[in-house]
């Protein structure tokens, strides 16, 4: 194992070869798994829409400049509210939420967490049902302050406040859209 001074070409060759094999195999694996991953994400989004709009039987996508908004419809094609995908900074990374809004009653119909990177066991508990349920039926004008009108989770006040801030910002954005409410067409 006596090695020469300077860089041997074999060192470069081996390292480059390992990198190429690694890169090519990961690219192949990515191509193979990405349709499955996207299908899971689409399914999760659809589930979230129906979860935050309990009365909806179908939904349609509304194109806006930057926001993804879905109009929920019941079986008689009546509008039952809007679902809006929104994101904001959490404690450790971005939190993406689906927020259900009822513009006529000016209240929330529910929230659902799509993605988040909060601390497992602490901030990650914002995804638990009894935390999310407290947002149902909240008024648009509520303060959304952790510890005041939102119950906190021990050790995760920042994550809880992040959800409150994102929801509150979502309401402001939603109201700025001034979507017409066709009601009973």
């Amino acid at each position: 194992m006596v090695e020469k001074e300077g860089i041997e070409s074999r060192l470069i060759f081996v390292l480059v070869l390992i990198m190429i094999v690694s890169g090519v195999s990961l690219a192949g694996l990515y191509q193979w798994t990405i349709p499955h991953i996207e299908a899971h994400e689409a399914l999760a989004r659809e589930r979230a829409i129906f979860s935050v709009l309990p009365l909806a039987a179908a939904y349609e996508v509304i194109e806006t400049d930057e926001l993804l908004v879905y109009r929920g419809l019941d079986e008689a094609q009546n509008q039952v509210g809007y679902a809006m995908e929104t994101r904001g900074g959490g404690f450790q990374g971005m939190i993406t939420l689906m927020v259900g809004l009822d513009p006529e009653a000016e209240k929330l119909t529910g929230i659902e967490v799509l993605t988040m990177f909060e601390t497992p066991g602490l901030g990650a508990r914002i995804d638990e049902d009894n935390f999310k349920e407290q947002f149902t039926d909240k008024q648009f004008g509520d303060p959304f302050k952790a510890g005041k009108d939102i119950d906190t989770i021990s050790g995760a006040t920042l994550s809880v406040q992040a959800v409150g801030t994102i929801v509150s910002a979502a309401i402001t954005q939603f109201e700025a859209l001034k979507l017409d409410s066709p009601g009973g067409e």
């Binding site: 074999r10 390292l15 990198m19 690694s22 990961l26 694996l29 990515y30 193979w32 991953i37």
Partner: peptide, 26 residues
């Protein structure tokens, strides 16, 4: 080769970690 073993090991380990991540996600 002895002199590039650490970067080689790291690349191999990272490849399997990424593979595990994709497979679990899918």
């Amino acid at each position: 080769p002895q002199r590039v073993r650490i970067p080689s090991y790291i690349v191999i380990i990272a490849t399997f970690v990424t593979a595990a991540d994709y497979t679990l996600n899918a």
